[in-house]
Design a protein around this nucleic acid. Structure first.
Lengths: 245, 245
DNA sequence: GAATATAAAATAATCGATTATTTGTCAAGC
DNA sequence: GCTTGACAAATAATCGATTATTTTATATTC
């Protein structure tokens, strides 16, 4: 697991100013920076799913040499966002109904399990981090008319889900969940302009968070499972509408 | 996921001769070959767990340039066998009691789930592959006095477990299981010269396989879970004996 | 006219050399 | 004696050029 930019860490969020002194873990090398930029480009859909990544063009686009470009792409393979074949190069991981369903199913298994473990062994700081992430998420407006609010909301949403499971003490499990969340977020951004009318997503998040902090394992886990499942169903309908197979 | 050498494919085994014509998927580039060699070196313990990988020395050892070396190492990161930090280079993934326990726990969750899915949707060919893998495994001698038999047995053992879950139709899940098996096998090779006396591992494998082929979900899954759990316990004792924390 | 072979272009992989960063060593200051 | 800072060595990251492979275009054969 590449520890330099997994973004699967527990609490810290993207807006905390660095504590003045040593704060620059990762993000240093060109390869790292490229990985970040490409990751965002893929999740946001700027780089189309399934499309080939031409090394020469990418090299020119980003004004870098081949080495760091391959380096960055290699990390995105670990993140599940890029696929690779010998002598055929890289391509953006494709999307499909089958893939969405696998991602949803595995999230139901793994994220719920990670929440279970977090509730079992998470400490008070973990609880606090959840309350903070929840508050920030619920206080943030999500306006379909203004894309920048969507993007911001998605970042906080992702942060919330990662924080929920950040107390589980299982690095591999967190890596898997992070990867699944990467793939999931891409479907969200591409197909979820608005959530289904019969849902109150804010309340769903609140229920999960409260159950977690109250250490009510079954309640919290069931709420999270339903939350993931509903989003999966919702997304599936959108994909079907747009003719994705 | 790097599709070039995941070895998480269903049936094919390492001894099938190539069908004369086009059979060379993957393994072509120097980077790929290096990944294979390094993978084996790490799982076998030839490269010590937690040790730093010096790029210059490795470059000389393998007589290659930096590019393919980094390429190969990058793949092993995806495999969970190597860790990386910006500007600090690569190191072999460390072993620990905590890691072994996480690997075991996650195998119990994921491998069992994958078996459940395989039983649900696996086809007749999947069944046949299991019977073949089981037969080859049970017919193979495992003699502690002759290391090459150990190595061969381990390869077939791994193949058996992968075949069991190869029918699940979930590439991401298979990737996760493959990664966990990588990590697990390293503990096996390092600490399991012989299995615990009160176990009949051959019978355990047979029971799992028979349950799977008979589509008895609960029986097969429970047997597999116990099998994984016992091996975990067994390994844990060996680690503790050798003072691994 | 379809299939196959050949040549040319595009693209990916690798190399050797250079630059940047980190680590280790030793001296100076407190 | 311990910390701090400057320097040197070791190591990692990057670059630009070269080589190998795949893809595309074109010609040839049946």
């Amino acid at each position: 697991m590449d520890s330099s930019d997994d973004s699967a860490r527990g609490a810290p969020t993207e807006e905390d100013a660095p504590p003045a002194t040593f704060a620059d873990d990762g993000k240093n090398t060109i390869g790292s920076q490229l990985a970040s930029r490409l990751r965002e480009a893929i999740i946001s859909g700027e780089l189309e799913a399934g499309s080939k990544i031409n090394l020469d063009k990418a090299r020119k686009t980003f004004n870098v040499s081949l080495s760091p470009l391959r380096e960055g792409l290699a990390r995105l393979i670990s993140d599940g966002l890029v696929e690779f074949q010998d002598n055929r190069g890289y391509r953006v991981a494709p999307i499909s109904l089958a893939n969405l369903e696998e991602v949803t199913t595995l999230r139901e298994e793994l994220e719920v399990f990670a929440l279970r473990e977090s509730i079992r062994i998470g400490d008070v700081e973990w609880e606090g981090n959840i309350m903070r992430a929840l508050h920030r998420l619920n206080r943030t407006e999500r306006d379909a008319a203004r894309p920048e609010t969507l993007e911001h909301w998605e970042a906080l949403h992702r942060e919330f889900h990662l924080t929920l499971i950040s107390g589980c003490g299982k690095p591999l499990l967190l890596h898997f969940c992070n990867l699944l969340l990467n793939l999931n977020d891409r479907y969200r951004r591409a197909f979820l302009i608005r959530t289904s009318g019969d849902r109150n997503v804010g309340q769903e998040h609140s229920e999960i968070a409260q159950g977690a902090v109250a250490r009510d394992v079954e309640y919290a886990c069931e709420k999270l499972r339903q939350h993931i499942h509903r989003t999966g169903t919702n997304l599936r309908n959108h994909l079907a509408t747009k003719g994705v197979v």
